[in-house]
Design a protein around this nucleic acid. Structure first.
Lengths: 225, 225
DNA sequence: ATCAAAACATGACAAATATCATATTATAAT
DNA sequence: ATTATAATATGATATTTGTCATGTTTTGAT
């Protein structure tokens, strides 16, 4: 099993603020885990007593809404920490986490990392900054959800995926979401998402092959209102 | 000018985690300020170099959306801190703050409070917990925005105002928002908000007098989908 | 390779919401 | 008290989005 103090992934999250000694201790109690595509990592209401450091793969964080639909709030990627909020307070998970492809993660028990939160102000401050950033992003998402059209939001998601995941050798988005997932990210009916994607195709903004999507005209996608 | 160490308001926010010495120092550099209804406290893009501790009154935090409408993200009330996020990172304000009624606030310069953030882990941890809580709430709002109908969201706002601000002697909501503000909270056109409130009135869920609103049937409001 | 299940696609229609026009009422300044 | 201004209200209509039905394609298990 690889050691935290040698792991390059931690540079991308708050764990970078830990000292070498702290990392050695964390390394001793962490557990590595492979997660298969589609597997549930935790569900709303679960007690998540620790954080996952994502070494590879992507998972979706979603919440069941009162109308019975699952809404995808966030995608968690390589380098991210998953379940930070379990560290503060005793509340159970507010969101469910499901792997979108095969993942490699490390799990660090809450009890261990709480010691660092209480003793290493640099670490706590880094998490604070991370959360402040997330909060700002959340506000932006709220405004977009409230004010933009479904078509606009769907275009935004395609742009986001292109910017953050890039494309494969054939030019298709490197991450594949189902049409239902797209609908659950923008908050619309699956049929509506499919319909709008079809329209984008007719307009020449994208092309598709099965569930794969290739952006053909990023500029025009950005102009959609 | 009153002293922080004697101020009861701080019990409601993260400042309660400061030591007596820290409070004395903060007290020496803070400035009290009265803000008139409608006054702009700060705007999107402003450099807010400190936090406001709200002693009295209410203000709205809003963001201009790409379609030109102002979206109200949050109401900040007595006891809350305003502008926490200015403390972490150097970014300018993401939201605008406008007083909804006359306010009394104290302003604490960033330079002073940063010392405490770096030295008092209890204070930092308290802010972290506060932000974690806000983040959870934000996720819930995102899901509601994405999945609930405008009518449902408007009913939710009325219930929220009733729960958090109570009613005056005549039974009207103790806080008065304009119809435009209601629209900007739920993310709809002003006419739509007015229309739905009219419908609520016809249905006997609420009654109105000018801009004042009285909830007549909280139970039925809660059943709206 | 075959088949069943899931995912994708599209039409027809219904419901929700936005927009524009125009009254009416309340509010604040003189 | 009067009046200009802003806020509230409502009708008519257009647009957006959701729902239900149904067919097609893709995918994965055998």
């Amino acid at each position: 099993m690889s050691k935290c103090e040698q792991c390059i992934i931690r540079q991308f999250n708050s764990l970078k603020a830990l000292t070498r000694e702290e990392l050695v201790r964390i390394s001793g109690c962490k557990t590595s885990r492979s997660i298969k595509k589609g597997e549930v990592i935790f569900e709303e209401g679960d007690a998540v007593n620790g954080v996952f450091c994502v070494k590879d793969g992507v998972c979706k964080l979603s919440k069941l809404s009162s109308n019975g639909k699952d809404h995808i709030v966030k995608l968690v990627v390589k380098g991210d920490l998953l379940g930070q909020r379990s560290l503060v307070g005793e509340e159970s998970a507010n969101l469910s986490a499901v792997a979108l492809n095969d993942m490699e993660v490390c799990f660090i028990p809450k009890s261990e990392i709480m010691q660092d939160l209480q003793k290493n102000p640099k670490f706590t401050l880094d998490m604070l900054q991370q959360m402040a950033h997330d909060l700002k992003e959340s506000d932006n998402v709220i405004v977009d959800m409230a004010q933009k059209s479904v078509k606009n939001r769907l275009a935004d998601v395609l742009i986001y995926l292109n910017d953050n995941f890039g494309v494969d050798d054939d030019g298709f988005l490197a991450i594949n979401l189902s049409r239902e997932d797209y609908a659950n990210v923008v908050g619309t009916a699956t049929e509506s998402a499919i319909r709008i994607l079809s329209q984008f195709k007719k307009d020449g903004f994208i092309s598709t092959q099965g569930k794969q999507i290739k952006i053909e005209n990023l500029h025009k996608l950005k102009l959609i209102e």
